Amino acid sequence: MPEPIILIPARYASTRYPGKPLVSLKGADGEKTLIQRSWEVACRVLPRDQVYVCTDDDRIIAAAEGFGAQTVLTSDRCRNGTERCAEAVRNLGTDAEIVVNLQGDAPLTPSWFVADLIEAMRRAPELSAATPVLRCDAATLQSLKNDRRAGRVGATTAVFGTDWNALYFSKEIIPFCDQLAADAPIPVFHHVGVYAFRAKALAAYPDLPVGTLEQLEGLEQLRFLENGLVMKCVEVNARGRVFWELNNPTDVPLIEAELQKELA
């Protein structure tokens, strides 16, 4: 079977944070751009010749090639990272059977999250797509509740069946658990925005109808569920690590504080 690849979709024209992929982040290993740190996460999982930055912006292409990354130029018509990955696969002409979408704003993603996804896809050839979920601890759940009470979206949560196939993803906290007993296991799972796709399923994604739920939630993975496709949830263990994404300028000091620690 052909080796898997990791694609890192990145765009310059972010609504909330223009130029975000080229923001510099200071860490224990010096100062590097966000896109370079995301690429380095991928290179801890697969050899660098199986990792690509895909973007519609020449500035990101130049920066990525400057630190040694392979790049794929995509159009500016892609509506989300999964569509950009689908186009990148077409442009590459690769025969990879497993394609990972690692978000370009995720420099703290533990490498084993990605490795666990790839392994799940290898074990079950019938899977179309897989994504990591992480059980919330009490502190994380309380933080999510505080965010919602303040009108902020703290994270995406996921619910799934006994077969671990996703039932729904939401920016609300699901399932409802305000009456949960103090000693009961917390049933809320944080969704980590990384995806592994079978190449055929990824190729079909841009042509799937965009449904009401995807539009309302602003979650690209809901396109699979609304069109009756299966996405497997893979439980991962953070091993004490935090993995904030960089969404706003205020996130920079939080991420830099973590980057001062040694990354696995």
Rank of each mutant, 00 (worst) to 15 (best):
E3M: 11
I5W: 06
I6T: 00
L7D: 00
L7V: 05
A10V: 07
R11L: 12
Y12V: 06
Y12N: 11
R16G: 12
K20M: 10
L25R: 05
K26L: 04
G27M: 06
A28E: 12
E40C: 01
C43A: 04
R44Q: 01
T55G: 00
D58T: 02
E65N: 04
T71R: 01
R77N: 09
C78W: 08
C78A: 10
R79I: 08
A88L: 04
V89L: 15
V89M: 15
R90I: 09
T94G: 09
D95N: 12
D95P: 03
I98H: 03
T109K: 02
I118D: 05
I118P: 05
A124F: 11
P132M: 01
V133H: 05
R135I: 13
R135E: 15
A138R: 14
A139C: 06
L141F: 00
S143L: 04
R152V: 03
A155F: 12
V159Q: 10
N165D: 13
S170W: 02
S170K: 04
S170Y: 02
E172H: 14
I173V: 14
P175L: 03
A184T: 14
P185V: 06
I186R: 08
P187H: 04
H191C: 06
G193M: 10
Y195T: 01
F197R: 08
F197N: 04
L202V: 12
Y205E: 06
P209D: 12
V210N: 06
L216N: 03
E220Q: 09
Q221G: 13
Q221Y: 13
L222Q: 10
G228T: 07
V230K: 15
E235D: 10
R239H: 14
V242L: 11
T250F: 05
T250W: 13
E256S: 09
A257I: 05
Q260I: 05
Q260A: 11
